[in-house]
Design a protein around this nucleic acid. Structure first.
Lengths: 222, 222
DNA sequence: ATCTGTGAAAGCATTCACAGCC
DNA sequence: GGCTGTGAATGCTTTCACAGAT
């Protein structure tokens, strides 16, 4: 096992994709695979697959390839998906409601992510139920985070309230934020932020449609 | 004006962010700005801002900075957001419905993106209305695309149907796809694909929470 | 004096070629 | 023979330093 000192951001995104492919292979009853097959499915080069894996250790057998089960387990461990992550949603507007009802928090039979709380600042929203969880006022965030050991939060408030929400979350010790608001959040160094902004995706699409010759450079994934 | 032969993918993502910041500045009545200010807001370096802009031309005045209005217009032109983009949604499940109802297709008083059709394969869904648009059967996709000059499509079908949807869209001449299904689509060279996958974002978050020392490398935006 | 625009340098990620092991 | 693992080379993106404009 290697000490991974510095790992390309893009590698993490690809590991998530490899894990998805391996999970599907496992479902199909496939036992062994290869960097070639994974590369084809993920639409990257086989070099890339092997290099990505090499950051974390040696998981294959030369001449033979990889065991699907083993590699799937290893990736799950590396990505931290062998334990449960407790989540809350801040902002119970249309998007927050859609997320609360989202049926996909389990993945491959594992409840990896679990909703532990729903929050809003609007008293009219407090008390409403989604997916069996009652909406609480944002003032009760700290209690919830401490009680349940909340790891990450989704910010689904209007854009002008997003930084406030982030500040509140950081203050009570949430370690990761998935930000759906179209703004760049400022948070302290030790808090991770991932952006989800499908309007930005549409705008990039518009550019690439206008400039087709630029398209084939690279893939970013989100 | 320069001939942009090869432009980093990441630059496009950042231009979208600069445009957002400029739009806000304009709303606030600010007339002039600088690479420093834009850099601070977007959380990148001022070098980066100037280099990104330099791919497309010279928009500032040395010693003075940029005129907000001018730069906003230029970015809008570069990104293709000075014209309307006609869109359809394929897959009217929960997510497709949420998108059809999404109130944000206008941005800064401009209807840049307009929904021209909603499609599903399920006869029960056909005929339902969302936001004043009637759901049609996927077989009627071609007519709609030809009639309205549809530019891009959102794929919100279950993951195992996503490639079929993409094939159908490519076949009738759609130029760009925003894919919400967690799979890597295979499409012909000249079709642009952008991925939106918030579960993948959650998984990356989990990794970065587990490995805080790796966090500060780079930002991907989606 | 100030702040943009840009060639050159540095820093990273990807690709390659092949050594190492089944 | 076949396929992984990995140092070295390539190529791209970011950073830097400063020339150029007002």
């Amino acid at each position: 096992m290697k000490p991974p000192l510095s790992i390309p951001n893009a590698t993490i995104s690809r590991l998530v994709i490899y894990l998805r492919i391996l999970t599907n292979l496992e479902k199909n009853g496939t036992n062994r695979t290869s960097s070639d097959l994974l590369a084809e499915e993920a639409q990257v080069s086989a070099f890339q697959v092997r290099k990505d894996l090499a950051y974390f250790g040696r998981f294959g057998t030369r001449g033979m390839g990889y065991t699907v089960l083993t590699l799937r387990r290893e990736l799950q461990r590396i990505l931290g998906l062998n334990r449960r992550w407790n989540c809350v949603i801040v902002g119970m507007g249309r998007l927050g409601q859609a997320l609360a009802d989202y049926p996909g928090y389990m993945e491959s039979n594992l409840y990896e992510f679990e909703l532990k709380g729903l929050f809003d600042i609007d008293p009219h929203k407090v008390g409403m139920q989604f997916h069996g969880i009652t909406v609480q006022h944002i003032n009760d965030l700290e209690t919830c985070v401490r009680t349940h050991g909340v790891d990450m939060a989704f910010i689904t408030v209007p854009v002008d309230k997003a930084q406030d929400a982030a500040d509140a979350l950081v203050k009570v010790g949430v370690r990761g934020i998935l930000n759906f608001a179209p703004t760049v959040l400022e948070v302290s160094e030790e808090v991770a932020v991932e952006q989800v902004d499908f309007m930005a995706g549409m705008k990039r699409l518009a550019f690439y449609i206008l400039n087709p010759h630029l398209k084939a450079l690279k893939e970013d994934e989100e």
